[in-house]
Nucleic acid binder design. Structure first.
Lengths: 126, 126
DNA sequence: AGTATTTTACTACATCTGTAGAAGGCGCCC
DNA sequence: GGGCGCCTTCTACAGATGTAGTAAAATACT
């Protein structure tokens, strides 16, 4: 389930709260994204065709729901990046993350904390 | 510098060893990718237009060199993924990595260690 | 009811992507 | 000096993407 950049915007708005109408989606787009109402409709229609969201009529108006979970979409996007840009392996990515400290010290600290929290309880290290 | 999937294939081959001719690139594509020679040429031409690679004539034949480093390309791709799919923040990504067990415990430990090393040296030149 | 507003279904259209075929030029072989 | 194989430049073309405009139908407002 490959989503394009624009589709991610829409999906992000949908995941945030759903079901939602086209107008609601529109209102929840990141400030800065200024699409015509019909553009949103077009996107939603295409997403429906792709089976990424469902459309249900509520009287005359359509309400949409994600059919693809954010989790699945993330996994898919992540895998693509890995395959395309990091030889399909975690190793190079981890290396990259650290080497290219794209992270502020603050982010690094946060990351460490998160990792430690997550690892905790995750059970016996082999 | 946004690269498409197909372009990544070409660039990966080029980064592997360069300068290289179109035919060399072709030979170094992942087994399974079976493009016509002219397809590769077209890609390379487009990459030249995009200023992602340079083209130099060697007699009648063109030899290509990356103008964009793999590092830069990776940073860009990584940032895009982050922005699109992870709210632009490392937090959600790390959470995802751990949750989805995309990281082996070993890699988690590694990441923590590397991050700690980085953080320690941050104020002082180590 | 008559008007204003919203929503929908269609259509449009320029770019970008993936994939390549055609035709012409150059060096080498016999 | 005609062919063979390789390289080049041009052109093509369908499908995906980004971004909307129009017109007509449904709903709401006064």
């Amino acid at each position: 389930m490959k989503l394009t950049k624009a589709e991610w915007q829409i999906m992000n708005a949908l995941w945030e709260e759903h079901p939602a109408t086209a107008r609601e989606v529109m209102d929840r787009l990141p400030t800065g994204v200024k699409w015509a109402y019909t553009t949103i409709k077009t996107m939603l229609t295409r997403l429906v065709e792709k089976k990424a969201v469902s459309e249900t009529k509520q009287g005359n108006t359509s309400v949409y729901d994600p059919l693809v979970s954010q989790r699945k979409a993330r996994i898919s996007a992540f895998r693509s990046l890995l395959d395309q840009a990091f030889d399909g392996a975690m190793g190079p990515l981890v290396h990259f993350l650290v080497e290219e400290k794209q992270l502020t010290p603050r982010q690094q600290a946060e990351l460490i904390e998160l990792l430690q929290d997550e690892t905790e309880g995750k059970g016996e290290t082999k």
